[in-house]
Structures are given as C-alpha cells and as structure tokens.
C-alpha cells in the first residue's frame, strides 16, 4: 500500500463563491523535498489539506496511487499549529502509533525511539499542552513519523519558531528526507527553501505559476511574479 504518486487533475477549491485554488494539475512523486512557495493567501495550506485528504476539491480529482479514497495510508501531516491531545507527550505518540496500527507490544519501544529521535526523551511524561512551541512541533513531527509515512506533508511548521528550534526541526526534516520519505512542505522563508528544497511549486492567487527545480527557480524565474517573489518584493499585481 502506497500513497505515492499523488495526482491532482483540474483541481479547484472554493469557499462559497470565493475561489481559493483554480484548476491545478500537479503530481507529487517520491524524490527530493518539494516546497510549495508563494505569498500569504496564495492557497498553500489549502493545497496541502487537499493532498492530505482533509478536504475534498470543489471540482477536479485527486488520486493517491490510483485510489480516490481520501483515507490516509502512508501519509502524514504536521500543521503550523499542531493540536496536542490532552495527555502526556508519550501518550500522544502512543495514540498516533495505535492509530497507525502498530502492534501494542511494539508501541513502547517505538515510542521511546521516536522521542529520542526528536529529542523529547526527557519530556515523555510532561503534559503535551505544556510544551513550548518548538517542542510541540517536534512531538507533532514524531506523531507524523509514527505513521511510517512515504509522504510527509508539513505546513509552515517553523513559521512561529525561534531560530534554534527552526534549525532542530530542519535537521529532522533533512534526516527524514535522507531516509527516503517524500517531503512536501509549505514555506515562505526563502532561506529555508534554499536549504531544504529539491524542487519548488510556486503558487500565486490559487494558481501554479511555476514548477521547477529549486536552483532553476531561484536563478531564472520564468514569471514576473516569480522574479518579484525571489527578490523579496511584495507582489500585488495578478
């Protein structure tokens, strides 16, 4: 069972009469991290939620390795503001492991391993909702890894973190990518994109304007909006 590739064909999404995404065609394959970039309000989060299967497109279709059933199999998501269950750090992770279908007898060991991996080993018994922002993201990351994902979606996970927490999370992301997990991540931190991304999808006003390798996009953007974004200008025209 695999979730890759994810194929979006003619996908649009609207809230009431307001279009958020317009007629997107996109395929997410295994490989280097793909970053969804674009200014605030360009539709990055909505696109990730569609790919995760949390919402359904208003028109068009999404399939995950040939199936249109949105139930997650081997994909997981880390939100910008992850919700911590009202229980301990370890219990949060055990819950995710249980939902992922891991056998009970293996859960404790795997839980300890994952907490050690993300650096929360000492906080296993701490109430999850008492964690700092950076620690929450680490726990959310561990919960996502609990699903043994092939596709790991991250929605601006470092947007509200300080630099050291950002670095810690970027290292975890890089490590996961190195182990073959496909990273699909939204960011508008261009430095972060340069550090982590293999290729980028540039989204603007609900449309994909560019889709290219990171290097190509940053060196030779093909659209005026892309150039403005790379320069760090505010883009106000369509």
């Amino acid at each position: 069972m695999s979730d890759l590739p994810v194929t979006l064909s003619h996908v649009s999404y609207a809230v009431g009469a307001t279009p958020i995404l317009r007629d997107l065609d996109l395929t997410v394959r295994s490989g280097a991290p793909t970053f969804i970039i674009g200014p605030n309000g360009s539709g990055k989060s909505t696109l990730l939620r569609l790919i995760m299967g949390l919402i359904a497109p208003t028109s068009g279709a999404i399939d995950w390795n040939g199936t249109r059933d949105p139930a997650p199999r081997r994909r997981a998501i880390v939100f910008q503001q992850p919700v911590m269950l009202r229980r301990s750090v370890a219990a949060n992770l055990i819950f995710a492991l249980d939902q992922a279908g891991l056998e009970k007898s293996l859960q404790d060991k795997r839980c300890a391993d994952l907490l050690a991996l993300v650096g929360l080993g000492d906080l296993a018994d701490r109430p999850a909702r008492r964690l700092s922002g950076g620690e929450r993201q680490k726990l959310a990351f561990a919960r996502a890894l609990a699903r043994s994902p092939e596709l790991l979606i991250l929605d601006e996970p470092t947007a509200s973190l300080d630099p050291s927490a950002t670095l810690a999370l970027e290292q975890l992301i890089g490590k996961a990518a190195g182990e073959g997990i496909k990273i699909l991540m939204a960011s508008h931190d261009l430095g972060q994109v340069r550090r982590l991304a293999g290729d980028v999808v540039f989204l603007h006003r609900g449309r994909i304007l560019e889709s290219a390798s990171t290097q190509a996009f940053f060196e030779q953007p093909r659209t005026a909006q892309g150039s403005a974004f790379v320069r760090g200008d505010l883009i106000t025209e369509d």
């Binding site: 949390l54 939100f79 992850p82 939902q99 992922a100």
Partner: peptide, 16 residues
C-alpha cells in the same frame, strides 16, 4: 472543531 484535522489526518475512525 479543534481536533478535527489532526484526528482525520491520523485516520481515526468514528468510534475511536
């Protein structure tokens, strides 16, 4: 309303 996305993403079924 707070947990919806997180639980759906974890594939939590109706009873659970």
């Amino acid at each position: 309303s707070e947990y919806r996305d997180e639980l759906t993403a974890m594939g939590v079924g109706p009873l659970q």
